[in-house]
């Protein structure tokens, strides 16, 4: 275990949604390289409290890279410099003594800032509520082994289902689009045999709810590069294909 010395932090402080916000400069004199990035912020907050100042507000919970609660643009990069790693799993050994680190919230129109580094990602929940499920009322399910699912299909569904709903894809996108998230959710269900009955209805509803809240995708691919779960951009192609099909199918069903 060694220690990093003299870290300079530039942290975004904003009192509330209406405040315009600004950067504050702080110094961390010494921190163990085994500490995680959020533990470094804990140390900063303890320092602020002991100086009788208000602690920096930031979202976090599991600190294991699975709940999707943590966020943060670190030196302009969503979840910081380490590939496939959430902010909470980033460790200080990635940085050096004397480094300046800029810490900002997700910046996207659909994710308004609540306070300091905390944003409102409720728009993701709205997308799910509009169709991101399989209707299976409790109690009526058949035996789980009744429908065998080929392993590659189950694996592909699982690859998409690994999305943690963190919003890094939106924050990284120059347009603030949520296509990677929405496509991950849609493809998880659309790959599976259980998901077929509502495939078209689901796709149409989710894509249109997404469009109400978020910007549009112009294929930059920044989303996938920032995604801590390495969701592939291929899911976006599948979503687009299913959306076109759903427009056609749903219209046909309506005209019946």
């Amino acid at each position: 275990m060694s220690h990093l010395k003299n870290l300079k932090l530039k942290v975004w402080r904003q009192k509330g949604p209406a405040d315009s916000g600004h950067f504050e400069n702080y110094t961390i004199d010494e921190i163990s390289d085994e500490a995680s990035f959020l533990e470094m912020l804990d140390v900063l907050n303890e320092q602020l409290i002991s100086d009788n100042k208000e602690a920096v507000v930031f979202d976090h919970d599991c600190r294991e890279g699975i709940c999707g609660t943590c966020s943060l643009m670190i030196n302009g990069v969503a979840h910081g410099p380490q590939k496939a790693t959430t902010t909470c799993q980033l460790h200080m050994r990635t940085f050096k003594s004397g480094d300046t680190i800029v810490v900002e919230p997700w910046r996207a129109t659909a994710f308004p800032i609540i306070k300091d580094l905390m944003v409102d990602r409720g728009a993701f929940d709205r997308i799910i509520e509009s169709g991101g499920f399989i209707t299976a009322v409790t109690g009526g399910a058949p035996d789980a082994n009744l429908i065998p699912i080929p392993k590659p299909v189950a694996d592909a569904a699982m690859d998409s289902a690994a999305c943690i709903g963190c919003g890094a894809c939106v924050a990284a996108c120059p347009n603030g689009a949520a296509n990677l998230f929405t496509a991950a959710k849609i493809s998880h269900l659309n790959y599976l045999p259980q998901g077929q009955a509502e495939r078209h209805k689901r796709t149409e509803a989710m894509v249109e709810t997404m469009d109400e809240h978020f910007g549009s995708c112009t294929n930059h691919g920044e989303c996938s590069a920032a995604c801590p779960k390495e969701i592939s951009v291929d899911v976006i192609a599948l979503m687009n294909k299913d959306y076109r099909a759903s427009k056609f199918k749903n219209r046909k069903e309506l005209s019946r």
């Binding site: 499920f133 399989i134 299976a136 409790t138 109690g139 009526g140 399910a141 058949p142 789980a144 065998p148 699912i149 080929p150 392993k151 189950a154 694996d155 569904a157 699982m158 289902a161 998880h188 269900l189 599976l192 259980q194 998901g195």
Partner: peptide
Amino acid sequence: QMVAQGVPFAREYGG
């Protein structure tokens, strides 16, 4: 119940 909802549990090659 969970399989009906689309939980992608691990599977054998036979499905």
